[in-house]
Simulated assay, not measured.
Amino acid sequence: MRAFKRLDAIFTTTKSLLSRTSTVWSRLSPVLNPWGALRAEREATRTLLALATEIVEEVADEITRLRDAGCDLATLFNDGMLADHIAEGLTCSEVEELAAFFRAIDHPSVADLWLECHANGDDEGDMHYQGERSDLALVA
Rank of each mutant, 00 (worst) to 15 (best):
F11D: 02
E57I: 00
R42L: 07
D61E: 06
D122F: 08
G121V: 05
L115C: 10
V139K: 12
D84P: 05
D112M: 09
L115Q: 07
A74M: 07
T14C: 13
R103Y: 03
L49K: 05
T13L: 14
C117W: 02
L49W: 00
A100L: 11
D126T: 11
R103K: 11
A69H: 06
E41R: 12
V95M: 08
D106W: 00
V110P: 01
R133W: 05
E57T: 01
S19K: 06
R67V: 01
E43Q: 14
R67K: 11
W25S: 06
L32N: 02
E116F: 06
A37I: 00
H85P: 01
T12G: 05
L48E: 14
F11R: 10
F4S: 10
A40N: 06
A119K: 01
V110R: 03
I86S: 07
A119Q: 03
H85S: 15
D84Q: 12
I63W: 00
L73H: 06
A83L: 01
D79C: 15
N78A: 07
G131K: 04
I55D: 09
S16E: 14
E88R: 13
E132L: 12
G70P: 02
L49Y: 00
T45M: 11
D122A: 12
R46S: 08
D135R: 08
L76N: 04
V31D: 08
A9Q: 13
E54N: 10
A60R: 04
F77Q: 02
T23Q: 07
G70C: 13
D61Y: 01
T91W: 00
L82M: 13
L115P: 06
I55R: 14
E97H: 03
W114L: 04
D84L: 03
D135W: 08
R20T: 09
I86G: 01
K15A: 10
G70W: 03
V59L: 13
E132R: 09
H128V: 04
R65S: 11
S19Q: 09
A100P: 07
S19T: 09
V56Y: 11
G80C: 08
I105M: 02
A9S: 15
E43H: 03
T47P: 03
L48Q: 13
S26E: 15
E94Q: 15
D122Q: 04
A44I: 11
F11L: 12
N120F: 14
L48G: 04
F11Q: 04
E41L: 13
A119L: 05
G80R: 08
P108L: 02
L115D: 05
Y129W: 03
P108H: 13
A119F: 05
R103N: 09
W25R: 07
L32K: 01
L98R: 00
L51N: 05
V110G: 02
T45E: 13
V139F: 06
F102T: 01
T23R: 06
G89Q: 07
E54L: 15
H85F: 03
E116Q: 05
F11M: 10
R103M: 08
L18P: 03
D84F: 12
V31I: 15
W35M: 15
T91Y: 00
A74V: 09
L138Y: 14
E88W: 10
R39F: 12
H118Q: 11
S19Y: 09
H118A: 15
D123T: 03
E88A: 10
A104T: 05
T23L: 06
T12H: 07
G70L: 04
A111D: 02
